[in-house]
Amino acid sequence: MRQIVLDTETTGLNPRTGDRVIEIGCVELKNRMLTGNNFHRYINPERESDEGALAVHGLTSEFLRDKPKFSEIAAELRDYIEGSELIIHNAPFDLGFLNHEFKLLGLPPFVSHASGVIDTLVNAKEMHPGKRNSLDALCDRYGVSNSHRKLHGALLDAELLADVYLSMTRGQNSLSMYDEVETQGSGVALEAVALAEIIVQRASDDELAAHGGLLDGLDKQVKGTCVWRNYADA
């Protein structure tokens, strides 16, 4: 399965009032393994960022002035995500901007090129109701280091989200005794590793006799049958 973890940075909060995408970061997963085939572009929005947005991402107009316009990277982005499942934190925000950018170019909606969308914010709220579920909070919860994250950046946030998503969905999916661990070296590939064989140690006759004596003593204390008799033959 091919999945794309995606994040954007924008000039503000609302594409309907003229805000634009200024950065796109995508991280590719194949069969739950990071491939290194990432997509990252800065974009000239042809307008200033709001003060609040600038404080979040730090991408100035001067820095973005010589970057390509969205129309110049749209086809490349479309081809990159074609047919994949998208993983996005707070998906309506990013998809709202990307769909709007495609609409401005007279193209079908961005999301129409994906096979589906996973919103990790929705998943996190279901898994951790009443808790903070921002990307930073999830990094703390799942032990994903984000100490190098001083400002928001689309590629960095996509990389962090990929690690968070793998941790969120790493639970046991069957009754077989397998666990997912990181392989040595790359630190990103996952492989199934069989757990050690379980050894069942039966109680000896002396141990069973001692256990029976303990239950007899409990029966006397409660002047009846102690609750542990219900499990004596389990």
Results as ranks from 00 to 15, higher is better:
5 V>H: 02
10 T>C: 02
14 N>L: 04
14 N>S: 13
18 G>R: 09
20 R>D: 02
21 V>M: 05
21 V>W: 13
24 I>C: 00
25 G>E: 01
26 C>K: 01
32 R>T: 09
34 L>A: 11
41 R>D: 04
43 I>Y: 09
44 N>R: 14
45 P>L: 12
47 R>S: 06
47 R>C: 13
49 S>P: 04
50 D>A: 09
52 G>I: 08
52 G>C: 06
58 G>N: 11
62 E>Q: 08
62 E>C: 01
66 D>F: 10
73 I>M: 02
73 I>C: 01
74 A>E: 12
75 A>Y: 08
77 L>K: 05
77 L>C: 05
81 I>Q: 07
83 G>S: 08
85 E>C: 15
88 I>F: 03
91 A>S: 14
96 G>L: 07
97 F>L: 03
97 F>K: 00
100 H>K: 06
102 F>R: 05
103 K>T: 07
109 P>W: 05
109 P>S: 15
109 P>E: 15
110 F>M: 02
114 A>I: 03
114 A>L: 06
115 S>F: 00
116 G>V: 05
117 V>G: 09
117 V>A: 09
118 I>P: 03
119 D>N: 13
121 L>Q: 04
126 E>T: 06
129 P>D: 11
129 P>T: 12
129 P>M: 14
130 G>F: 13
134 S>T: 15
135 L>M: 10
135 L>G: 08
138 L>D: 15
144 V>E: 12
144 V>A: 09
149 R>C: 04
158 A>V: 05
172 Q>T: 12
174 S>P: 04
175 L>P: 02
177 M>N: 14
182 E>A: 10
184 Q>K: 09
186 S>M: 06
186 S>T: 14
188 V>Y: 04
191 E>S: 12
204 S>W: 00
211 H>V: 04
212 G>D: 14
214 L>K: 10
217 G>D: 11
220 K>V: 08
220 K>I: 09
222 V>F: 07
223 K>C: 08
225 T>V: 15
228 W>V: 13
228 W>P: 03
229 R>Y: 01
230 N>Y: 06
231 Y>H: 05
